[in-house]
Amino acid sequence: MIYDFGMPAPLARVVEMLASLPGVGPKTALRLGLNLLSRPAADTVALAEALARLHEQVGFCENCGCFAEQTVCHFCNDVRRDAQTVCLVEQPVDVLMMERGHGFRGHYHVLHGRLSPVDGLGPEQLNLAALDKRVASGLKELILATSATVDGEATAHYLARRFTSSGVKITRIARGVPEGGELEYLDEHTLSRALDQRVSWDATSI
């Protein structure tokens, strides 16, 4: 146990569990634990019930692999979205980030990882069987939105080759200078990408 300076055992257990979460250090875990203890008991019970039911109520869409409360997620069930345009991402959380922009109205496909020989992750460990079926059904466009890491780029190249002869249009999300970014704070790889993927001035003006 990480806390042994007279803290009551039940509280120490809560703090220890909180500290096991990513991004939560011992001090933050202690503050959270004390905050929970200071709240009404009903609030703590509600939080415990929500956590207890999390795995029961949230799973993954059998079609795209995104978060889902049923067998199919609400993105796949939304008839207003373009089912012929699919944006491929590495993890379900990436879908949530994409949706924050409110600019994409197609469907998603989640790989649940990326190719990484060092970690023993090959094509067999990714959600590719379902993707093969979707591409074979006649997609119009497959947007590769994997990360800009070495493994992410390798995954994008692998998928582009995998579906080259399928007839689907394969595109890659642009990389470059972020909105509001200053050049002095950007790395050379990002600047190189921005130059390679430059667009006509008319296309950028409003």
Rank of each mutant, 00 (worst) to 15 (best):
H112D: 05
G106A: 06
L121H: 13
P117R: 03
V118L: 15
Q91E: 15
V110H: 00
D94W: 10
E90R: 08
G106Q: 03
L126M: 13
H109E: 02
L121T: 11
L121G: 05
G120C: 03
H109S: 06
Q125V: 03
F104Q: 05
E99I: 09
S116T: 05
P123R: 13
N127Q: 00
L111T: 05
M98Q: 12
E124S: 15
F104H: 02
R100M: 10
G122L: 06
S116C: 11
L128S: 09
F104M: 04
Q91H: 11
L96M: 13
M98F: 12
R105D: 14
P123H: 12
A130K: 11
S116I: 05
L96K: 00
V118I: 14
A129F: 04
Q125T: 07
G106D: 01
G103D: 08
L121K: 12
L96E: 15
H109R: 02
R105C: 12
M98V: 12
G122I: 07
F104N: 00
Q91Y: 08
H102P: 05
A129E: 15
L115F: 10
L111I: 06
P123A: 12
V118Q: 14
E124V: 12
L128F: 10
D119W: 01
P117G: 14
A130R: 11
H107Y: 12
R105Y: 09
M97F: 10
G120P: 01
H112P: 08
D119M: 00
G113A: 03
P92E: 04
R100F: 05
H112N: 10
V118S: 14
V89T: 03
P123D: 11
P123T: 06
L115W: 05
Q91A: 13
V93D: 11
V110Q: 01
D94N: 13
E90C: 06
E124N: 14
E124D: 13
P117S: 13
R105V: 07
V89Y: 04
E99P: 06
M97D: 11
L126D: 06
V95Y: 04
A130Y: 07
E124Y: 08
Q125N: 11
V118M: 15
V110L: 02
G120M: 04
L131S: 01
E124I: 09
E124M: 10
E124P: 14
V110W: 02
P117D: 15
V89N: 02
H102A: 15
S116A: 14
A129Y: 08
G101I: 00
R100Q: 15
M97Y: 09
M98G: 00
G103A: 11
V110D: 01
G106F: 02
V110Y: 00
V118E: 13
V89H: 05
S116Y: 08
G113S: 03
P92K: 07
G113M: 01
Y108C: 07
R105H: 15
G103N: 08
E124A: 15
F104E: 00
Q91P: 01
L121I: 14
H109W: 07
R105S: 14
L115Q: 05
M97E: 14
G101W: 03
P117V: 09
